[in-house]
Computed example of a mutant assay.
Amino acid sequence: MKLLLHACCGPCSLEPVRLLQAAGHDIAIYYANSNIAPREEYAHRLATLEDWAKSEGIPVIEGPYDPVTWEETAGRIGNAALADVQAARKENQPAAADRAESGRSAPADRISDPYEDASLRADVLSVDPARREARCRACYRLRLEETARVAAEQGFDGIGTTLSVSPYQYTQVIEQEVRRAAEREGIEGVFEDFRPYYDEATRRSRALGMYRQNYCGCRISDEEAAAERAERKAQRAAAKQAERAEHAAEIAAAEAELKKHRADRAAYDKKQARKRAILKSLREQAKQKASE
């Protein structure tokens, strides 16, 4: 089948392309990702994809970069979810005078630093999962409908996507949107759950020195990923602190033993130095008597 494969980035394309080619599909890649922000990130991912695809002899077609349309669809849903968080925080924020007294500046009227403290991390991570799924569905739909339209216009038999290689995506929703977009244009929807090959894709992309991003692509996923990383860091710090507290007595005993050892060593060194000084004095006295 002549297949137009929607791709989100280079690393996620490695295994899907290999498997689809092995299944006999003639592949061209379509880069339709108006969700990616900022534009520099979009360009970096595209360049990584194009460099690899060129080495494999796979054509890459770039779709229009239209973040405005993305904001009007998926972005609007994401903003609604974050607005709930912002509203809740405003109700619980201390007065400006209290913040000044505590040495903290007044927070901006948006979540600009989701990992500033534990409460902000919790707020970002507590966004209603149903709304998050709705945002991602709208994002998938926008990009896959565009892919299907271009595929139909350019004579492809069907479409697929690399999105399902990621264990962080909504796999079932992706399948639904691939088939929906394809049916809408009268072409085939080719879907496969590539998640079992994620580890191999990770290994291969690292071996190739590919740029690997640390968030899905949109500004909201960037905030979520940052919050999740900060939460994991906080959990590791808490676990380390708890372990230290659990073994506090052992640590204190070990430190006391080390301190005693150092004190004993210092006393021994002082005693030996005094002996050496006495012996040196006796030798000098004997030498002086022998010379008289």
Rank of each mutant, 00 (worst) to 15 (best):
K2Y: 15
C12Q: 04
S13E: 10
L14Q: 00
V17P: 12
V17C: 09
L20D: 12
A23M: 08
A23Y: 07
I29E: 00
I29R: 01
I29S: 00
Y31S: 01
N33V: 05
I36Q: 02
I36K: 10
A37T: 12
Y42W: 14
A47R: 08
E50M: 06
K54T: 09
E56M: 08
I58N: 00
V60S: 02
D66L: 04
P67C: 07
V68A: 07
T69S: 04
W70L: 04
E72T: 09
G75K: 01
I77L: 03
N79L: 06
A81F: 03
A81G: 13
V85R: 01
A87M: 03
A88I: 06
A88Y: 07
N92K: 10
Q93R: 09
Q93E: 08
P94I: 00
R99G: 14
R99P: 12
P107Y: 00
A108F: 08
A108C: 08
R110H: 04
I111M: 07
I111H: 06
S112E: 10
D113P: 12
A122I: 08
A122R: 09
E133K: 07
A134E: 14
R135Q: 15
C136G: 10
C136Y: 04
R137V: 13
A138V: 05
C139T: 09
L144P: 00
E145A: 06
E146L: 11
R149E: 14
E153T: 14
Q154I: 15
D157G: 12
G158C: 03
G158Q: 04
G160N: 10
T161V: 09
T162W: 01
T162N: 03
T162L: 01
S164I: 00
V165H: 06
V165G: 06
Y170W: 15
Q172S: 12
Q172L: 04
I174H: 02
R179S: 07
A181R: 07
A181Y: 03
A182V: 09
E185T: 01
E185N: 02
E185A: 09
F194N: 04
F194H: 07
E200A: 03
R204A: 07
R206G: 12
R206W: 05
R206M: 11
G209Q: 02
G209V: 10
G209H: 00
G209E: 08
N214M: 07
G217T: 01
G217S: 05
C218D: 14
R219F: 10
R219H: 14
D222E: 14
A226H: 09
A227H: 13
E231W: 14
E231D: 13
R232D: 05
R232W: 09
R232I: 05
K233M: 08
A234F: 08
A238M: 11
Q241N: 06
A242D: 11
A242G: 10
A245L: 12
A249Y: 11
E250I: 00
A252Q: 14
A252G: 13
A252V: 13
A254K: 15
E255Y: 00
A256P: 14
K260R: 15
K260D: 15
H261Y: 08
L279H: 04
L282R: 02
R283V: 07
R283A: 07
Q285W: 02
A286P: 00
Q288N: 03
A290K: 03
E292Y: 06
